[in-house]
């Protein structure tokens, strides 16, 4: 992690509260994400980590709170707006397009950058053809980067779980995001797959300067790769800081290990 310089605050979340009926998923949560850093969100099951991610990229609308993305207020972030603003994400339960090939899945990530109109596409003329080639080049770079050349024409439904996770990451990277949200990128993987995934996340962060916000359960991984960690429990923030600070935080210890009474 050399040469990487953590910059200014790029994403600032202020007093976010989200509830579903009577269930308070998130209560008054504030934290910020700095440019180029790897920010982890951890917490026990049901702590509201995925809800937090869904709020950031507009899948859920918080009842209260403000999202400030590079100085711009997004009180009503929607998914499309989030995608346009340079946020990409992967999903906990892989949400790939099962009927399409790996290549097509990753190409959908380029969708926002493709401008050819329908008539051009229907006759495969001009901009349509040119764009398809340009973006294919970019997609192939990502395929190389994630080492999935051998499966590019395979329908994703046929791939093993670990590779599907990698394609999910590839699709998010194809958007060339400024902030990458990863929802449990290593869940269900074996040790080698986890190592690969860690390497990819660090490489993305290092080479492209992409800011990463990730949710992860594997504490070893989180403490190793993240710059700062925010800890949630029952929808409340109970800790925030560097891995060492968080590890020493008594609230965090009691949430994870149970308090001694």
């Amino acid at each position: 992690m050399s040469g990487r310089k953590i910059g200014e605050v790029i994403l600032d979340l202020k007093n976010i509260s989200l509830s579903f009926g009577g269930v308070k998923a998130l209560q008054d949560i504030s934290f910020d994400v700095r440019e180029h850093e790897i920010r982890a969100i951890i917490g026990p099951n049901g702590a509201g980590k995925s809800s937090m991610l869904n709020v950031i990229n507009g899948v859920y609308r918080p009842q209260e709170g403000d999202i400030i993305l590079r100085g711009v207020h997004h009180a009503n972030m929607d998914s499309y707006g989030a995608a346009k603003a340079g946020l990409a994400r992967t999903f906990q339960n892989i949400a790939l397009f099962k009927g399409m090939s790996v290549l097509d899945n990753i190409m959908t990530g380029r969708n926002l950058k493709m401008k050819a109109n329908m008539l051009q596409q229907a006759f495969w003329l001009g901009a349509a053809q040119r764009e398809e080639l340009e973006h294919r080049l970019k997609v192939e770079e990502i395929i190389d980067f994630l080492e999935i050349q051998h499966i590019r024409k395979t329908p994703v439904g046929r791939l093993p779980y670990g590779l599907q996770k990698r394609v999910d990451l590839a699709r998010a990277l194809a958007m060339e995001p400024q902030i990458l949200l990863l929802d449990e990128p290593m869940a269900g993987m074996n040790v080698e797959e986890k190592q690969d995934m860690c390497r990819f996340i660090l490489d993305v962060n290092d080479q492209f300067g992409t800011t990463v916000v990730l949710i992860e359960h594997d504490m070893g991984v989180v403490m190793d790769i993240s710059d700062r960690v925010v800890v949630l429990d029952y929808g409340k923030k109970i800790g925030d800081g560097t891995p060492d600070e968080v590890r020493a935080n008594p609230d965090v210890i009691s949430a994870y290990l149970g308090a001694s009474h």
Binding site: A95, L96, F97, R171
Partner: peptide
């Protein structure tokens, strides 16, 4: 067709 939530998140 395959996954509309993921499609929206990608900017479709």
């Amino acid at each position: 067709r395959d996954m509309d939530v993921a499609a929206t998140v990608i900017g479709i």
